[in-house]
Design a protein around this nucleic acid. Structure first.
Lengths: 246, 246
DNA sequence: CGCAGAAGTTAGCCATGACTAACTTCAGGT
DNA sequence: ACCTGAAGTTAGTCATGGCTAACTTCTGCG
């Protein structure tokens, strides 16, 4: 433990006063890129291609290319031109810290302020870069140092350790298999609204009844109701598979 | 009512996805300058000098000069080179909206998260530029559409109307006069800590016992304790004067 | 009234991070 | 092995907001 990267909060000097444009050293760009690369890397730490990063962030590959070079100079990624980038340890800590902020904020907005779960992502996407260490900790305490955000994604702990995920895409199950719905991507508000309307939440037990072939829908039963989930949705939802005996 | 400037929240398109660097159009600079000018203007809407703005924001006057020109182009200030700037109606709305964000956030951090009142200012200074309209409203509702922030400063209402202030600096009272402590500048953390230690909070009734001449301290009695308040503090604290009969 | 110093402005630069257009490298298919 | 299209990079530009240095305007004192 104690592996936390020290970024020393913000606004080193100028504690007093109205100074808004203080010695900023924003790092916001770095945080977003680190997060994107982290998510794209997956468990196999294959290098991530420039275009993949560019697509995820909605920028041109020229912009991504330039930024990867800069992250490389800052020691956040190992970057081989034409061959992609992978996060260094330092870069991974930046990503995890940002993800911790993001998910704590999502949960906070949902739990404490009652913001609908399909809208917390967008708000968190902005705020994650602007909360101090102190506020992060106050939020975490208020929530009881939680493990999971409203979409079931794990929240890195204070030392930025993250529980690895043993879930699989729902799409992967075959008829007859059971699972517990653990998480769903937070970034598609429409999917989240669809699930919310049907009261399908992380934690729900489900049974796969049927799977239409060739990328078709999956039919599942949840709490004695049957749902047909389209292939995109079934690909975004993750479940922890249950062995038969439960 | 209904005078609210419409800035349409944020991120017009791209609701979905991870896009962090979306069509940003930040406006953060404008908000900070508008706020600074608003505070410097006071009730007499004398034009505010470039240097005053620069000092308050901790930037050079060259920077302030350039920015005032830009705010003028955007229609937020009336700016006469060499003769200062004053907010237009549009600029005042930007300032009031930012101030509403600031004070709601301050109160929220103090009330809901228990952040000490000498630290809420710094945090709010950053976050005020990054909360959506929706979050603003959720916070206001959570707090019961409050009128005053933790330092006793009035919070503009949803239509950005602000209750005018009938308070005077404590320094202005003469021995024998009574008042209610209404507010204190939020930007000096040391003062706030000093007051907090002595349990002097907005709302407290006080009686001026003594005033040392030539910019000296003011001696006041609050809840049967006597305090000597230095001239800077007594200048920053504002009180609503009480007429004798109460 | 005139001039010196204060106040304010302009010019030119830096950093961040995006963009387009043009060029280079890489990899797959024959 | 080679060539072509896809992937990636470089060059040059823009916008935001800082900065210093040099210049201009304003103002108050003698």
């Amino acid at each position: 433990m104690g592996a936390r990267a020290k970024r020393g909060g913000r606004a080193p000097a100028a504690t007093r006063g109205h100074h808004a444009h203080r010695e900023r050293q924003t790092n916001e760009g770095a945080e977003n890129y680190a997060k994107a690369i982290y998510h794209l890397q997956g468990r196999d730490s294959e290098p991530v291609h420039t275009t993949a990063v560019a697509d995820r962030l909605g920028v041109t590959s020229a912009s991504a290319s330039a930024m990867l070079k800069r992250l490389s100079d800052e020691g956040l990624v190992d970057y081989e031109p034409y061959h992609g980038a992978r996060l260094t340890t330092k870069g991974e800590l930046v990503a995890l810290e940002t993800i911790r902020h993001h998910r704590l904020i999502e949960l906070f907005l949902a739990e404490v302020l009652g913001m609908p779960w399909d809208r917390v992502h967008e708000e968190a996407e902005v705020l994650e870069h602007h909360i101090s260490e102190e506020l992060e900790e106050l939020i975490a305490v208020k929530l009881g140092q939680p493990d999971l955000d409203p979409h079931g994604d794990p929240i890195p702990d204070r030392d930025l350790a993250i529980t690895s995920d043993d879930s699989v895409p729902l799409m992967r199950l075959v008829p007859g298999e059971r699972g517990i719905f653990t998480r769903v991507s937070d970034s598609d508000a429409e999917m989240l609204r669809y699930l919310a309307e049907r009261e399908i939440q992380p934690g729900a037990r489900l049974l796969v009844k049927e799977r239409e072939p060739f990328g078709g829908a999956v039919v599942v039963q949840i709490a004695r109701r049957t749902h047909r989930l389209g292939p995109q949705l079934a690909g975004s939802m993750r479940v922890r598979q249950q062995v038969g005996d439960e």
